[in-house]
Nucleic acid binder design. Structure first.
Length: 261
DNA sequence: CTTGCTATACTAACTTAAGC
DNA sequence: GCTTAAGTTAGTATAGCAAG
C-alpha cells in the first residue's frame, strides 16, 4: 500500500508496507523531511540513513538510490522540489552567485525549530487546492530558512552550470551500480553520448554495457562468496532489476548459479 | 583530428510464467 | 526461495557523415 500526493512540487509519500527503492537520477534539487520511518540513501560511495525528524537536501544531477523503511507507524516523508527557474529568480533577486561545483550529492540539514515547524505545517496543505503561486511562495520560504543557518548551501542550490567533463574511470567505478541509461551517464560526465562511448573504448577497451555488467557480476560474486549474502539481497544492490535476469546473467558468466556459492 | 548526430541491426534487459 | 525458458522491447553498438 502506498500513497503519493503532489501539489506543484510539494510532495508527500507514504508507504505502509514493503520498503521501496526510489529514483536514481535526480533532475532537480529537493529537500525531504522524514515524518516517520527511515530512509536509506545511497550515493555511490556510502549509504546514509535518515530517521524520523531528519531533513536532507539532495542535489540535482546526482545519482541517488533511496530505500524507504516503514517503522511501526509506516513511512512518511514530505519533500519540496526546488526547480531551476525558481532558484534562478531567487539568485537574481538576492544577487547570489555560486561558482563552486558541489561534489557531494546529499546534505543533511540540522533542523531548527523553524524548519521543523515549516514541514509539520505542510501536512495540512495536502488535500487542499493550492495555486502554483502559493506553492512557490512556500518554496521560497524554505530556501530562506535553509540559508539562514547554513550559508554553505548556497553553493549547492545556486549552481546552474552543466556537469563539467570529469574523470571517466573514477566516475564509472563509483556509479556502475546505478541502473540508468547511458545518455544520463554521459551527461553526468560532461560528455555527449558519442564522446562518452569513444572515451570509454579508449579507457576500458570495451563497450559501456559489457564493462558495467562485468563489473556488477564481479561484485555480485564477491558479495555472495565472501559476505555470504543471498541472491535476493544482492541483485538490487548492484543494479539488476529482476532476480530472474540476474540469475541468468550470473550463470552465463560463471557457469554456476548464484545460490551455489 | 575531434566532436556530435543519425540510421540500422542487434543484444541485453525485462516480463511472465512455470518448474524445481 | 531460486532457476529456467520463451517472448517482447527498449536501449545500445557501430559505422558513416557532416561540421567545427
Amino acid at each position: 500500500m502506498k500513497q503519493q500526493e503532489d501539489i506543484h512540487g510539494i510532495q508527500r509519500a507514504c508507504y505502509s508496507k514493503s520498503s521501496k527503492a526510489g529514483e536514481q537520477f535526480i533532475k532537480e534539487h529537493g529537500i525531504s523531511f522524514i515524518v516517520s520511518g527511515e530512509m536509506e540513501a545511497y550515493d555511490g560511495n556510502t549509504k546514509h540513513l535518515y530517521r524520523k525528524g531528519d531533513v536532507v537536501l539532495y542535489r540535482k544531477n546526482a545519482l541517488i538510490r533511496f530505500v524507504k523503511y516503514p517503522g511501526h507507524d509506516g513511512f512518511e516523508a514530505i519533500s519540496v522540489i526546488l526547480e531551476k527557474n525558481l532558484l534562478k529568480e531567487f539568485a537574481e533577486r538576492h544577487e547570489i552567485h555560486s561558482d563552486k561545483n558541489p561534489k557531494e550529492s546529499l546534505f543533511k540539514v540540522e533542523p531548527d525549530e523553524l524548519i521543523s515547524s515549516y514541514f509539520t505545517g505542510l501536512e495540512t496543505w495536502f488535500g487542499n487546492k493550492i495555486s502554483i503561486e502559493l506553492a512557490n511562495i512556500k518554496k521560497i520560504e524554505i530556501i530562506h530558512l535553509l540559508l539562514r543557518n547554513n550559508k554553505a548551501l548556497k553553493n549547492v542550490l545556486f549552481h546552474f552550470g552543466m556537469p563539467g567533463k570529469i574523470d571517466l574511470e573514477a566516475f564509472m567505478n563509483t556509479n556502475f551500480r546505478f541502473n540508468v541509461p547511458l545518455t544520463q551517464l554521459a551527461f553526468l560526465t560532461g560528455r555527449s553520448l558519442a564522446t562518452f562511448k569513444r572515451d570509454f573504448e579508449k579507457l576500458f577497451q570495451t563497450s559501456p554495457n559489457k564493462w558495467i555488467q562485468q563489473k556488477r557480476l564481479t561484485e555480485a560474486h564477491y558479495l555472495l562468496e565472501h559476505k555470504k549474502m543471498k541472491a535476493k539481497d544482492v541483485y538490487l544492490e548492484i543494479g539488476f532489476e529482476t532476480l530472474s535476469h540476474f540469475s541468468y546473467a550470473f550463470k552465463n558468466r560463471y557457469g554456476i548459479n548464484p545460490s551455489q556459492l
